[in-house]
Design a protein around this nucleic acid. Structure first.
Lengths: 190, 190, 190, 190
DNA sequence: AATGAATGAGAATTCATTCAT
DNA sequence: AATGAATGAATTCTCATTCAT
């Protein structure tokens, strides 16, 4: 089978795209992405038929990675607040650890090159988290808001929090704490 | 060189840019913007030296318009919650009334073509609102968070709220109410 | 109206395309055509939206020119043979005078980039010549073949004749005479 | 390096090239040809060093096949007209039976990728037919035209005839008859 | 000042050919 | 020998900006 298509290369391209899109936006040249990935210009297109396909895959991978990170926290506490705090922490940790992934996700999120289909698939990866939110509502811990709305609130507050953590690193921990507090109060019942 | 003559043309270009960027993103051709503005391609460049300048001006104008809208609500109530509710209402009203302006602002906000300087100037237009938030903190109505953080929380929750209002118009009012509730609880003391 | 679109430039592009396609086939780069036309690469596309449009226009212009040349012979003799001989002579003269036009027309004729529509339009320019053939059939001078078939025979024999004239210029006149003789006998009655 | 092993593969590539070039012209990708031949992209180049070599070989094979077909008609009649009619019939039969071969030959014939050398070799395969034509001239049955000219006339009239047969199948037989009539009259003496 | 044609530096792909497997 | 991934030069077309009118 000649040279098999290498996962390493595919990942290198995705990683390069993440970095370059973070810096230059979705208008970044595929040539630049290829160069950063240490791959020939043409090679990029053996892994992704078009730039749009690359962008859509990237969006999905990042969404998947983020949702995966949020769930990785193991110990399923029975307390709603604890569980949400854990998820929030994982979210923020991920965003702070990988600022370019975060930035790129933001760029892709507002780009019209990401199809509705891809966006829907991205949302599906948050099904489990939405379920968690839903249970919390059912248990009475949270106000009666649609789980997807609660999830979106979580996302936007976490993003805002990370913006301030990045802009003012000296008080990063304060923002992290304060941000979760804001989120919890925003949706907790009472 | 002073300002070129016609404010009408300048405004037409800005309005066209708003519409076209909302539809196509910051990568939209200046030729398209000019056409929508009913102006020749070259004319655009007598009002804005470069595309980047146009984009930065547009960002600023929209930020100014938004902050202006938030403050336009006459009667300065002495109650923090009332004042914030009014500001929130104005914000959401503006965003719902001018969805392309909102979308364009989001596009520009994540674009690397908007300079730090422009972003700083954009923030300055929210000085008055931040002052209002600060007073509320001082009065004990709000938790002790930096006013800019509170302002950013307000912005991101309002955006999230409008996303859901647009996506699910049947329950728009519910989201509007629920969104403000979330915001208030997020930052109110206790 | 700024600079008006120049017919000179348009014609230069068409002429350049003729020359370059004759040499390199329809795969010839638009960049080469532009260079030969002494025009910027981008300029070509202000006159012809796509390469296909350029090729189709070129095909049509050449067909038009050829059919025009065939009819330019003035003196409408009443004798079928004389009229055909004149048309034939004009055809061959044109082909010998403009070998690249002839070659390019051949290239375009077999290319799938020329649309059916364009081909149909090209045929229409030969309406008058077909009518002439038709009359000759009606008058009994020609065998009863469909005029378009007779026209095609005329075309293919003229092309063959010109091939030999070009390949063996010393006997060019012999081929010209002999070719017409062949054509006339091919379609004359009895 | 001698010939590589499998004649089957070589033939499959040639057949695939015939089909693909007929459909897409000489610009058809080697990758497409390989795929149609059910062979790997790289394999094509172990049988033909370059695309040009493939194209030139193909031209030659088709010419050979065509000339072979024209001669395959057994019984060498002594009558010039009969012999030519037979050759003509074989020609047209071949062209109608293998329309892609015919189309591809036309494409290759006007392409600048076929070398003069190849074209000369292609002509050589018609030596025998030219000899036949020469004898007919010698016998007085044909007008005194160079045999190669007569041969070319035969070819171009047969092509024209087949074009009309293909375009208007209902009258295919009429064209076939009429076409030969035209050809014979074109070159017969008196 | 306004116009829109002219410019040429990219941009995303494509493709013949090479080469590791 | 066969495979198909890798390569990068070449191609068509776009677009911000300039400039003749």
């Amino acid at each position: 089978m000649a040279r098999p298509k290498s996962d390493d290369k595919r990942n290198a391209i995705l990683a390069a795209a993440t970095q370059v899109v973070a810096e230059q936006g979705v208008g970044a040249p595929t040539a630049t992405i290829a160069k950063v990935a240490a791959v020939a210009e043409g090679t990029l297109f053996t892994y992704f038929a078009t730039k749009d396909e690359l962008l859509n895959r990237l969006y999905l991978e990042l969404k998947l990675e983020l949702s995966g990170a949020m769930l990785s926290a193991g110990g399923k506490s029975s307390d709603a607040r604890d569980r949400l705090r854990l998820g929030w922490q994982q979210y923020v940790r991920w965003g702070v650890t990988y600022p370019e992934k975060r930035k790129t996700l933001a760029q892709l999120g507002v780009s019209d090159r990401i199809t509705e289909q891809t966006k829907a698939a991205g949302m599906r990866s948050f099904t489990e988290i939405n379920a968690m939110l839903q249970e919390s509502v059912a248990s009475g811990a949270l106000r009666d808001v649609p789980p997807m709305f609660a999830g979106a609130i979580m996302g936007s507050l976490a993003e805002t929090t990370m913006d301030f953590m990045a802009r003012d690193p000296a008080h990063a921990d304060d923002y992290a704490t304060s941000g979760f507090e804001a989120f919890w109060n925003a949706i907790a019942s009472k």
